[in-house]
Every structure is written in structure tokens, then in C-alpha cells.
Amino acid sequence: MKTPKAFKIISLVIVSGLLISGFSSCNSKSAKKESPQISEKTIEKEVKEYIYPLPSTFEVTNMLNEIEASYIVGISNDPDKASTYFTEKSKAINLGIYTADLAYATTYNQKSDIQNYFKASETLVRELDLTGAFSEDLPDQIEANMDNKEKLVQIVSDMFQNAYAFLNKQGRTEVSYLVLTGTVYEALYLTTHISENTFQNPKLIETILFQKEPLLKLGEMLEEYKDSEMLKETYEDLAKVNAIYALEEGTTSMTKEQIEKLTETITQIRDKNVK
């Protein structure tokens, strides 16, 4: 079975190939005007903008599954609330949250929840005018592969990538970052709420620490937009989470106080966004 990380690498190769092919098709006059160095920089920029920049949520949910953490019914965001989000910001963040919930349900083969979270995601995809990012038969693909976990993981992983690339191609970078943020919020929320004894489980601590670098990278990505109306609050909330991770800088463990503070903080932030 290909891992989500493999899908990301394959997507990178495909996009790079398509971009290189596009540049190669230019006429010779244009090619003479543009040096190979400029072309490489342009390709690098395109790849950076369009390739999903963080580890797939499946990497987190698979870690939970591998340590035999139970699937918790009702821990995810209520799919019936999808139609209650009215601002572009709330729709984008909750699309990220629902896609993480979809990954969680897919990892654990929870067919009913897979269908529910896909429908919730589909509602927000329409509301955000993202239908052009997906093939018309996507619902049929989900339904047809309900018993094929490997294929289903690939389909959902492609959904993440396609939505991110589509938004950035439209120049809606801030919206794409909100979707990313919702995804990482939910992944961390699930990890810190999967057990009542998180601190006593070294594997859960390892899963929490795995998310440190992606959260830090997302914070760096949002830095450019920290004063924008749409992302200011999100940037500040994410900074609170990263500050807790930084309390034990340079170590490979976390204190009980850190875990408790991290759990409390992500719960407050997540609850504020899903209400």
C-alpha cells in the first residue's frame, strides 16, 4: 500500500513534469529569452504554491491506528453543522476540520462516518465554490471504493491536494491556508482527546510531537498574512499552540503540564471555530 507521503511525492513529480513539459513547448524565441536558471526558479515557485505543503492527516491518523487507539464515535465535528457556517473563514476552517475527520473515519474503516464527513465536506466545497477542483464522479468513487481502504485513502488524499492547488491557482491563498489550519487543528485535537491518559502513553506523546514541525511550518506560512483581516486571529491562535511546543525546546519529550496546556488550548481554539 502506498503511504500518504508517497502520494505527495508522486504528486510533486507529476506537477514538476507537467510544468517542465509546459516550458518545453514554448517556441524557440521565448526559450532564448529565458535562461534555464529562471525556468528552474519558476518551476520551484509553482511547485511550492500548488503542492500540499504539510504531512497528510493520514500520517497522524495512521499513527493513532497503529498504536491501537480506539475509534471514538462522536469525537469529530458534527457533520450536520456543515450548513450552519456562513462566513468564508468559518467555511474554510471547517472544511479542513471535516477533511481531517474524513481521514480519521477512513483510517478506521468507519463506513457510515466516511459517508457523513464526505457529505459535510461536499457541502462546504460547494459553498466555497471549489467544485471545479474535483471530478463530477467523486461521490461515486467514494461509494464504489467503500470496501477498498487503499483506494479510498488515495481518493481522499487527492482531495486534500486538489483543493489546496485549486485555491492557490485562483489566487485564494488565505482561504487555502485556513483549510490547512482546520486540518492541523483537528488532527491535534483528535490526538489529544483519543485517550483520558495521554501523558501515560509514550506513543501518543510521539504522535503529538510528530505534529510539532508541521504546526511550526504553518505558522511560518501565515507570517506574511498575520495582519490580514481574515488570518490575523488564526495566526495568533496558532502562535499560542506553537509557544506550548517551544517550552521544552530541544527535547524529544513533553511534560505533563505541557500536554494539559496543549489539550486545553487546542480545545478552546477548535471549539471556537466549530460552534
Score class of each variant (00 low, 15 high):
Asn77Phe: 00
Tyr71Val: 10
Lys91Glu: 03
Tyr85Leu: 06
Glu59Met: 15
Pro55Met: 11
Ile75Tyr: 05
Ile67Tyr: 09
Ser39His: 03
Pro55Tyr: 04
Ser90Phe: 07
Leu54Ile: 08
Glu66Cys: 08
Ser56His: 08
Tyr85Pro: 04
Glu40His: 09
Tyr50Thr: 15
Pro55Asp: 06
Lys91Ala: 06
Gln37Phe: 10
Lys89Cys: 04
Ile38Met: 05
Ile67Glu: 14
Glu44His: 08
Lys48Trp: 04
Ile38Arg: 06
Ile72Gly: 04
Glu68Trp: 02
Ile67Trp: 06
Phe58Met: 10
Pro36Leu: 07
Ala69Met: 15
Ser39Met: 09
Val73Pro: 01
Glu59His: 11
Glu44Gly: 01
Leu64Thr: 07
Val47Ala: 09
Lys45Asn: 09
Ile51Ser: 05
Lys89Asn: 09
Leu54Pro: 04
Glu66Asn: 13
Phe58His: 08
Phe86Ser: 14
Ser70Trp: 00
Glu46Arg: 04
Val73Gln: 13
Thr42Asp: 14
Thr42Gly: 05
Lys91His: 01
Met63Ser: 14
Thr87Cys: 04
Glu66His: 12
Glu44Tyr: 07
Glu66Pro: 13
Ser39Leu: 11
Ser39Ala: 06
Pro36Phe: 00
Asn65Trp: 12
Lys89Asp: 07
Pro36Cys: 03
Glu66Phe: 13
Asn62Gly: 06
Val60Ile: 15
Ser39Asn: 06
Ser56Lys: 05
Ser70Gly: 01
Ser83Trp: 00
Glu59Ile: 15
Glu34Ser: 10
Pro53Leu: 06
Leu54Arg: 03
Glu49Arg: 13
Ser70Lys: 08
Leu64Arg: 07
Thr84Gln: 11
Glu59Cys: 09
Thr87Met: 05
Asp80Pro: 00
Pro36Gln: 04
Lys48Leu: 10
Met63Pro: 06
Ile67Leu: 14
Glu40Ala: 13
Ala31Thr: 10
Tyr71Lys: 07
Pro36Arg: 06
Val47Lys: 07
Val60Asn: 08
Asp80Lys: 13
Lys89Ala: 10
Val60Arg: 03
Glu34Arg: 06
Glu49Gly: 04
Pro36Glu: 02
Ile43Gly: 02
Val60Gly: 01
Tyr52Asp: 07
Ser90Cys: 01
Pro79Leu: 02
Asp80Trp: 03
Val47His: 00
Ser35Pro: 08
Ser76Leu: 02
Thr84Met: 11
Pro36Asp: 03
Ile75Glu: 05
Ser70Glu: 08
Ile67Gly: 03
Glu44Leu: 11
Thr42Pro: 01
Gly74Ser: 04
Glu88Arg: 12
Val47Arg: 00
Asp78Pro: 09
Ser35Met: 09
Lys81Thr: 11
Gly74Asp: 03
Thr57Trp: 01
Ala31Glu: 08
Ile72Thr: 12
Val73Tyr: 07
Lys91Ile: 05
Tyr71Ser: 04
Ala69Val: 15
Ser76Gly: 11
Glu68Cys: 08
Lys33His: 09
Val47Met: 12
Thr61Met: 10
Lys33Arg: 12
Ala31Gln: 14
Ile38Thr: 12
Leu64Lys: 02
Gly74Met: 02
Ile72Trp: 00
Tyr52Asn: 06
Ser83Tyr: 02
Ser30Trp: 07
Ile72Ala: 05
Val47Phe: 02
Ala31Gly: 00
Ile72Asp: 08
Leu54Asp: 08
Ala69Ile: 15
Lys45Ile: 14
